[in-house]
Write a protein that binds this DNA or RNA. Structure first.
Lengths: 149, 149
DNA sequence: AGATATCCAAGTAATATGCTTGGGATTGGA
DNA sequence: TCCAATCCCAAGCATATTACTTGGATATCT
């Protein structure tokens, strides 16, 4: 039950963006270089993040992305769900597009999947980008690399 | 971040086994028929469950499987981990074989994955097969089908 | 005009999933 | 003693998913 690279890269990229939040538009090129990710692949991730309203984009020279809201108001959960879809462990209890199941009402195991879904959501919704920034500065107190995350 | 069919089928099959716990050896054939699963595929799942010590097997005619312990003492978590491996969302925080990472000590996002892992484990380890049996009887109070789960 | 960006749609190699197939070994009963 | 039922084991395999790459179009600043 692993996250795909979309979720992992997406959180990294969003934290990178948050750490450079005051510097205006941030290009995917610079994020890709700092985090050692494929720029073209990041494009796809940021298309989803933009559609989810988490980032705003500016095209052209000096263009790039900025967070749509302050880091305190963007949770890891919203980033992950924007990129991975529902974090439910089975599709029948997805918040977005729960797949139909004939015995939905009498399914015993459904209770498990719902609790797992809620447990995961509770964790990721309680972590904001600001929490990650704070953690970052705590870990990198001396050497301020602003680099690998 | 979905479970594979191994985890889903495995929980269903283990609940089926628990519901027939008093009837001696239960063949995969009968479980496969009741739950509409592939018998051959179930063989693979039960190989893992047996290695994990969750079921005991008896070969030959009248053979089959029984739970190794009472349903109260077998958790959904142990079943899922036996079949899916660690439920950690990324491999660097797997309990079993965490993959190496050069920046393990200074990784900011690691905190997220650990919390997700712990959150999921807490949920699934708090649900026993007996809890599912109780739930089953509650939902099927009138018609006692002993069939679909 | 031209460099630097985002945007968008396909294409693709590698990997994982969800089984099936084909055997072998063990056991209980006729 | 034989045979049917069962677990056990290793491979094979079609399909789907993943993790990108490629090739372009469009917008913006200098």
């Amino acid at each position: 039950m692993k996250l795909s690279t979309k979720g992992r890269y997406g959180v990294k990229a969003m934290l990178d963006l948050a750490l450079h939040n005051s510097e205006g538009n941030i290009s995917l090129k610079s994020i890709a270089e700092r985090q050692e990710l494929s720029e073209n692949y990041l494009e796809q991730l940021f298309a989803s993040l933009r559609k989810a309203g988490l980032v705003k984009s500016m095209r052209g020279a000096m263009g790039g992305y900025v967070l749509s809201d302050s880091p305190e108001n963007i949770t890891v959960g919203s980033v992950l769900r924007a990129l991975e879809g529902s974090l439910a462990p089975v599709s029948c209890v997805c918040e977005d597009v729960a797949t139909e199941c004939s015995r939905y009402e009498c399914c015993v195991t459904k209770m498990i999947w719902e609790k797992m879904r809620d447990g995961v959501n509770q964790v990721v919704d309680s972590i904001s980008l600001q929490n990650l920034i704070d953690e970052y500065h705590k870990l990198n107190k001396d050497e301020d690399l602003m680099f690998f995350i």
